[in-house]
Amino acid sequence: MEYTPNADQEISENEQPILQLEDVTIRYGDVPAVQNVSLAIARQQITSIIGPSGCGKSTLLRALNRMNDFIPEANITGRILYMGAELYSEETDPVDVRRKIGMVFQKPNPFPKSIFSNVAWGPSINGYREGIEDRVEKSLRRAALWEEVADRLHDSASSLSGGQQQRLCIARALAMEPEVILMDEPCSALDPVSTARIEDLMFELKKRYTIVIVTHNMQQAARVSDYTAFLESGKLVEFGETDQVFTRPRHNRTEEYVTGRFG
């Protein structure tokens, strides 16, 4: 790997990155899935992580809100700083981390409860009971779902379509008022129309939130993201502004991948 990405360079000088990865290596047992990755996630921007299947995208994404803690054999070395604070230190409570850094999964996973209760769930376990109706409405509006569900808030979430369920899961994450939203292939189970809606939504969300998205879809990465990280076999091959990565890649593996010549 002759090109070592210099993360700080990519981001406008005056803005400190919200998440900073320094030499992050993640292993399952002894097998490394992510190796020596350093990069910076810019605030209120969309960063996409692309790369062939099994290259460690999901592993890397889960490291950002400590969801790997639930995989007993996973271990991490290196540093991840969230707004300057160490994410993996003794003093950091992973529960607090996940309140600030929300996650949307590949397959919509609403709770088997009503639409309202799904969105209200996060705030309610964290003791925000006051003005819960407003909060639910605000979150559903931000997730571009309000119009469709306003008159059936107490129907079961399973009565929604797949795309609506995914937007409900986004609303559920937004209700926690997180800073960062991690999305792992959020559209891979959805049809093109629902996908387009979620992409539009991401542009809206960017005004308030930082988004990190894993995607297999090159067009999607090119369309929605400001920064792109290309991973291969756990190593960060290239990281930079999406425009540059797709049109003037510095590394020919990147070029081969984004032009669809492999993977």
């Binding site: 996940r98 929300g102 996973n109 088997p112 769930w121 559920r172």
Partner: peptide, 19 residues
């Protein structure tokens, strides 16, 4: 996936289990 969804909202094990 349901448990993960709940954990990702900053729930503790106890909350995930009981709620």
């Amino acid at each position: 996936s349901l448990r993960q969804g709940a954990y990702a909202l900053g729930a503790t094990s106890f909350e995930v289990t009981t709620r």
